[in-house]
Design a protein around this nucleic acid. Structure first.
Lengths: 122, 122
DNA sequence: AATTTTATTCTACACTTGTAGATGAAATTT
DNA sequence: AAATTTCATCTACAAGTGTAGAATAAAATT
């Protein structure tokens, strides 16, 4: 199951806020804000898809994510790699590194991470 | 404009084949194959979206991609990074490197790429 | 030339998505 | 307590998607 574009946007707000009431979600949208019923509809659909839960606090509901951004994103990425890179993360990484202009610091940071990973392998 | 899931799958076949007749596209699907009219519908929609063109060869049409996999994918990725990583490719790279289990060779290969990039910076 | 194969367009239909009004009920403010 | 605000649900509807049958036409085969 996957989220639609609009749902994903809302989910991003929710991940950032961690827990949020309707009002907080509304606030997190820039102008022009969507109608609050639109958010409600999205929240409902996301509950059906089991991406969002809530805790009733009196009548108000405090919503929270049921999946972490990390795991959601990992699936996403895995799909991309599968579809576009022959299921080879290395091929993907090489594409990414070549096509994205990273600054020197960024490259050094990355290099360090990779070296750490290599050391762990030993 | 974006391709839908099913269109993207077809596009992948087309990228791989570079140029293809209806028949070749059908062949590229695993069992159970979709109806050929389904492929036709998709192709039509993809032409409307200007992702696919064709050259008539007698009555047959030889289809080909109008956008490269690289540029299509780059946009995709840019969107992902924007939505999920605060628009920071470096943040993304670090996440990717940590979450994906790359083999030692793959890591070494990556390291080499990064070193090349660093040298180019000088 | 008649038949068969192959591919295209048209039509269709159910499902998903983006968006929001109407309605109603609980909570808050006056 | 009455009025107002806040929000969830229901209903709705247009656009986009996945999927494919019917009709048709050109090409290949017999």
């Amino acid at each position: 199951m996957k989220l639609s574009r609009a749902e994903e946007e809302l989910m991003n707000h929710l991940w950032r806020l961690k827990r949020a009431f309707m009002k907080d979600l509304m606030d997190s949208y820039p102008e022009p804000k969507p109608a609050s019923t639109t958010i409600s509809t999205l929240l409902k659909r996301m509950q059906d898809k089991e991406f969002v839960g809530y805790e009733a606090n009196g009548k108000l509901r405090e919503y929270f994510p049921l999946v972490s951004k990390e795991s959601y994103f990992s699936k996403h990425l895995k799909g991309l790699i599968k579809n576009f890179f022959n299921d080879s993360p290395a091929q993907f990484a090489s594409f990414f590194t070549k096509k994205t202009e990273l600054s020197e610091e960024e490259l050094l940071g990355l290099k360090r991470i990779i070296e750490d990973q290599l050391n762990q392998k030993k």
